[in-house]
């Protein structure tokens, strides 16, 4: 520290100054002792959680990156060989990968777009509902939130399935739907059911995030707009939505990252048939089903990179302030 070199000028003044200096130093030392103790305690308390989180993610992803550089098939362990970036070349030069990525993005975009609208409507309903109804409505929408995704996938699958389903009978009046419509035989119809089940299951989550955002909109602003003669739609558009933009952005980002990792519904409903394969399923089938650890790890790493990219784009381009919106500030 630079404060040590105390200039010696006049004797009396300098003594006083020196004493002052020393007191300050003691103070600082005491304070830094306390700070140090506090940060030690802080890390003692928070450290285990931090270490566990790193251990269950950072280590495996590092291992995946390492494995992705090898040709390694579990049922032929002797043939393991270092092959550099070949696995990545194989994956990235294959049209299958890009098709799968496209399908994953399509599911993500459609599902999240519908969910935001639907979730917003649900949030408005819950926000405005009279107290007696609020509990009932919340309880109802928490059911899809809490239900196991696999269960929801089966429920939707059986409803639409050509032999066990009732949808074809019920909706026979809709053009294009009749008892011979096999929903899981075409890409479009399979994706429709997959996306519908995804929307059903996760809209409650997004609507709760938006509900919290709605609560942040100052009521005075809305009232003022009402006095000015703004219609309901104008108020929504000019006052409510701009004021909860941050909440919407965060909700969209979180759901998008979640939807991008979709797996359960596709696994149960089509298993990837009719070009409905998604990235997570491709990674699973390669490494877990084919036991091609090397190739599968490469896909896993690419999936991870995609998630980071989405996050990066959202934060840099759309200025989503995750930390701020999540309570850190």
């Amino acid at each position: 520290m630079s404060a040590q070199v105390a200039p010696a000028k006049g004797s009396g003044a300098s003594e006083a100054a020196a004493e002052e200096e020393a007191r300050k130093r003691r103070n600082r030392a005491q304070k830094s002792d306390r700070t140090r103790a506090e940060s030690r305690l802080g890390w003692y308390l928070a450290g285990p959680a931090f270490v566990v989180m790193l251990a269950v993610t950072a280590y495996p992803i590092a291992q995946a990156i390492f494995d992705s550089l090898f040709r390694f098939r579990l049922s032929a362990p002797d043939e393991r060989a270092f092959i550099g970036l070949t696995n990545y070349v194989v994956v990235l030069s294959d049209v299958v990968f890009w098709r799968v990525l496209g399908v994953t993005l399509l599911i993500t975009v459609v599902a999240v777009a519908v969910e935001v609208v639907l979730g917003f409507a649900l949030a408005l309903v819950m926000h405005r509902a009279i107290t007696q109804l609020r509990g009932l409505l919340r309880t109802a929408i928490l059911v899809p939130y809490g239900i196991i995704t696999v269960v929801s996938a089966f429920a939707w699958f059986y409803a639409f399935d050509i032999s066990s389903g009732f949808v074809n009978t019920w909706f026979a009046w809709v053009p294009g739907v009749d008892e011979n419509l096999n929903w899981f035989a075409n890409m479009g119809t399979s994706l429709f059911v997959i996306i519908a089940s995804e929307i059903w299951k996760t809209t409650p989550f997004i609507s709760l995030l938006l509900l919290a955002g709605l609560a942040q909109v100052p009521t005075e602003l809305e009232e003022a707009a009402e006095v000015d003669g703004a219609t309901w739609w104008q108020r929504l558009n000019r006052v409510v939505i701009p004021n909860m933009k941050a909440a919407i952005m965060v909700a969209v980002l979180f759901r998008a990252l979640d939807a991008f990792r979709i797996f359960d519904n596709v696994f149960i409903m089509t298993g990837g048939a009719n070009n409905t394969e998604v990235l997570s399923l491709l990674a699973y089938r390669t490494s877990i089903a084919r036991l091609e650890i090397g190739l599968g790890s490469a896909i896993s790493v690419l999936l991870f990179v995609c998630v980071i990219l989405i996050c990066f784009i959202a934060i840099k381009l759309f200025k989503v302030d995750l930390a701020g919106a999540r309570g850190e500030k």
Binding site: S163, N180, L181, N182, F184
Partner: peptide, 15 residues
Amino acid sequence: AGAGLPTADESASLS
């Protein structure tokens, strides 16, 4: 084999 063919397994063909 009916509209169910693309999803027909042993059980479906039996029904």
